[in-house]
Design a protein around this nucleic acid. Structure first.
Length: 753
DNA sequence: CGTCGTACTTAGTAGCCACCGC
DNA sequence: GCGGTGGCTACTAAGTACGACG
């Protein structure tokens, strides 16, 4: 029911104080690395200053000319982790000889013993990791153990305790987390890939071994007492037809199934699966009665809920076993978690929004549809007995382990690694570095597009106005999409005339543009924005002589825009603006909202408010929680009760005062005082409840998670936590800490985005 | 240039589960 | 113990981007 989404009031102008960025670089007291890094610190300083001062490559070149040890020092681990990786890749062309090691991978190895890093990641010529140079203490690399979830947590904690304090010799209140944890004894050490080299030859890995995907469970035919009726008459379906019928039956009380498109698509695809007699008999969906099937599945899920603890445990154990067996792969000597190791089961396609293909049958994927990607020298995953993979390939220019083509849109689906993996983490880190580069030149670009608003060429004006929107409103790029293949949604470049309204004057503001369109996932974007006069005039121009359904930017698309952006800055694309604006907003908001003397919950509230500002900017919405109304009502009853109490208390005060008037007595005086106190207390409680209510109200349709996970440079949050002594667990849950391990490890309290 | 195929990121939701107050 | 509730994870759809090709 995507239509129940509502408005986004993105009145976040104020968040964009474009000109108010304050760069506070407290170099002097920021070097709190582990002792062993100390000697490098002055270098970091140099480097960082240079980085800030310009934005070309030249500065870096000289570094690479230096010799080993020194070069290395330059590169690694700025206290803020600001190594410019993409820049380096140009310089560091030398390719390391990669070694493939088979290294005792027997079925599901719980522990991967590590090779000496030098063997594996190094070319003699390339830069080295920092650790290498304290050769004495660093030799063969430790054991890697990256499965075992339970231990992992402990491990991480341990690290937090053991390492951070060392690094941050004095660390302010920073380590609240400190004492509180029982130091568990895992000796192993988490792999810090961020302290290592990256490949520069475009290869994504040099060794990859995995067990392949877990296929979807085969279809289990219904018991014979569960019947299907057509036109009132019972009918036994062939297994193929029955399976598809069950997909529908399972969704019976979902709104989807009432939709015309859904029914049509379903029925069409269902008929394709029917045997010919079935096909000739079953011609009208309305005459189909799936109720018994539906009831059956409901009963099943009830039964599942009512299962004994033991049975539930059994399932849990089995899942865990599958996870251990298929949930990990070996990539370049490390055991890494796979994100989605299960093949998507068949079912009915549920598109979002008004999707023309909703209800279509999502086919069962067979081994013959599946492409496996792994190392030549690795133990290849075996297809299920009696089947074959479509192909086994060895492409180390890509990161996926398994792929197949889905039948609805013809899109390719992949099995890839978890966000905590090196391969995802590096990319993520790089993304934020690109956004930080944008920060350095964003003013230049803004001046540029302002100029371009005046261009004689229509395409340039359009490009400039679109870019203005992308920058100011954090709109998505807006690739064009094939009509009829998916829901009608747009982004910036694909905006149509009908999606905006122009008001020369509205609500006391001049030159207001009103946006109203469906964006990704058919989430509505609604916003009224005052714009600069030139933009406004341009928009009028772009809309001249056009129909509502015509493109607003008819001379522009994402590839033109991105090509232009590439010329302005390396690696710059439209989506970088979203990342940049999100992160910079968080940083500013945190600065603004955090007050030093607040207590911990208040600080966390401030963090969430800052986070919320970003979510609003990016229009990250969620469906109102189903229980929202009710829980809100509960809160309201509480508030009402409080109000009653309060007015009672006030009345008490009054009567006490009256009493006091009649008889001036110490006792009555006291009574008045205590009654007054009671009133105050109640007022305070009431206020708290009301704040809570507004808070929840404000958040009801805003999803904070997306921005936290995808747009906010985690180092900003980590730094903020360190600065104010907030335990990181208050901000990031376990998964998030795993994903952002690199940032947690490298960012210090003075990190500046 | 536009189109297509591919790879990878970003997105919201369903449903499970741990925890909380009673 | 119980039911509500909020957090989290798994899932998979829907974006962006880019290179090859004609």
């Amino acid at each position: 029911m995507p239509t129940k989404r509502h408005y986004c009031y993105c009145s976040l102008w104020s968040l964009f104080s474009y000109f108010s960025l304050v760069y506070i670089l407290y170099f002097a007291d920021s070097h709190k690395h582990k002792d062993k890094y100390k000697d490098k610190e002055h270098k970091h300083k140099d480097h960082k200053e240079r980085e800030n001062s310009k934005y070309g490559n030249s500065d870096h070149k000289e570094f690479s000319e230096k010799k080993h040890g020194e070069k290395e020092k330059e590169r690694i681990k700025h206290k803020d982790g600001s190594t410019d990786r993409h820049r380096e890749k140009d310089k560091r062309k030398e390719i390391k000889p990669k070694k493939e090691k088979e290294n005792g991978f027997s079925s599901p190895p719980r522990i991967k013993s590590e090779l000496n890093n030098d063997d594996v990641y190094h070319s003699p010529k390339s830069l080295k990791r920092e650790r290498d140079h304290d050769e004495t203490e660093f030799k063969p690399k430790k054991i890697k153990l990256e499965n075992d979830k339970v231990d992992k947590k402990a491990k991480k904690r341990k690290q937090d305790e053991d390492i951070k304090p060392k690094k941050t010799q004095k660390n302010k209140k920073g380590e609240v987390a400190d004492g509180k944890k029982k130091a568990k004894k895992e000796p192993e050490e988490k792999w810090k890939w961020w302290e290592e080299e990256r490949a520069t030859d475009g290869s994504k890995w040099s060794f990859l071994e995995h067990k392949g995907p877990v296929m979807a469970a085969p279809y289990e035919p219904l018991p014979s007492n569960v019947r299907f009726f057509y036109d009132g008459k019972q009918m036994k379906l062939s297994p193929e037809a029955e399976e598809v019928a069950t997909f529908f039956a399972k969704m019976l009380d979902h709104e989807y199934t009432t939709k015309d498109t859904f029914q049509k698509n379903f029925f069409k695809d269902w008929r394709k699966e029917m045997a010919s007699e079935e096909k000739s008999k079953i011609t009208d969906l309305k005459k189909c009665n799936f109720n018994e099937m539906g009831e059956y599945f409901k009963a099943q899920s009830e039964a599942r809920k009512a299962m004994t603890k033991d049975d539930k445990l059994k399932i849990k154990v089995e899942n865990e076993r599958l996870l251990q067996e298929y949930g990990f792969c070996i990539m370049d000597n490390h055991k890494e978690r796979i994100a989605n190791f299960r093949i998507e089961p068949p079912g009915l396609f549920r598109g979002r929004g008004d999707h023309p293909k909703m209800g279509m049958l999502k086919r069962r994927i067979r081994p013959e549809d599946i492409i496996i990607n792994c190392s030549k020298g690795s133990k290849h995953p075996k297809p299920p007995p009696g089947t074959k993979w479509k192909e086994v390939r060895h492409d180390n220019k890509v990161t996926w382990l398994v792929s197949w083509t889905e039948n609805i849109q013809g899109a390719i689906k992949y099995i890839m690694l978890n966000p905590s993996s090196r391969i995802k983490g590096e990319k993520d880190w790089q993304k934020y570095e690109t956004a930080r580069n944008l920060k350095k030149c964003v003013e230049r670009l803004r001046n540029q597009y302002r100029e371009d608003w005046k261009s004689k060429e229509m395409r340039i004006r359009q490009r400039a106005v679109a870019l203005y929107f992308i920058d100011k409103l954090a709109l998505r790029a807006g690739n064009e999409k094939e009509e009829g293949e998916s829901a009608d949604t747009v982004g910036c470049c694909s905006l149509r005339v009908e999606h905006i309204n122009l008001y020369p004057e509205k609500d006391g503001q001049d030159f207001v543009v009103e946006f109203d369109f469906l964006g990704k996932d058919s989430i509505r974007y609604y916003n009224k924005v005052p714009v600069e006069k030139r933009v406004f005039k341009n928009l009028q121009l772009f809309m001249e002589n056009k129909q509502p359904e015509d493109d607003l930017f008819d001379r522009l698309n994402t590839s033109i825009l991105n090509k232009h952006l590439q010329e302005l800055m390396d690696d710059l694309t439209a989506k970088v603006f979203r990342t940049y604006n999100a992160s910079i907003t968080l940083q500013q908001q945190l600065k603004e909202l955090t007050s030093p003397d607040e207590n911990l919950p208040a600080k966390i509230l401030s963090y969430n408010r800052a986070n919320r500002a970003v979510a609003i900017l990016c229009n990250h919405q969620r469906a109102q929680p189903k229980t929202f109304e009710k829980s809100m009502q509960n809160l309201q009853t509480k508030i009402d009760a409080k109000k009653d109490q309060l007015s009672d208390a006030k009345r008490d005060v009054k009567s006490a005062k009256a009493d006091l008037k009649v008889r001036r007595d110490e006792k009555f005086k006291k009574a008045v005082e205590t009654k007054k106190k009671a009133v105050e207390r109640l007022e305070e409680q009431l206020m708290k409840l009301e704040v809570q209510a507004t808070d929840r109200e404000e958040n009801k349709q805003i999803a904070l998670g997306t921005s936290k996970l995808n747009y906010l440079d985690p180092r900003i949050s980590v730094a903020w936590c360190k600065k104010w002594g907030i335990p990181i667990e208050k901000i990031y849950n376990k998964t998030q800490r795993e994903k952002f391990a690199w940032a947690i490890d490298m960012a210090e309290d003075d990190y500046e985005f």
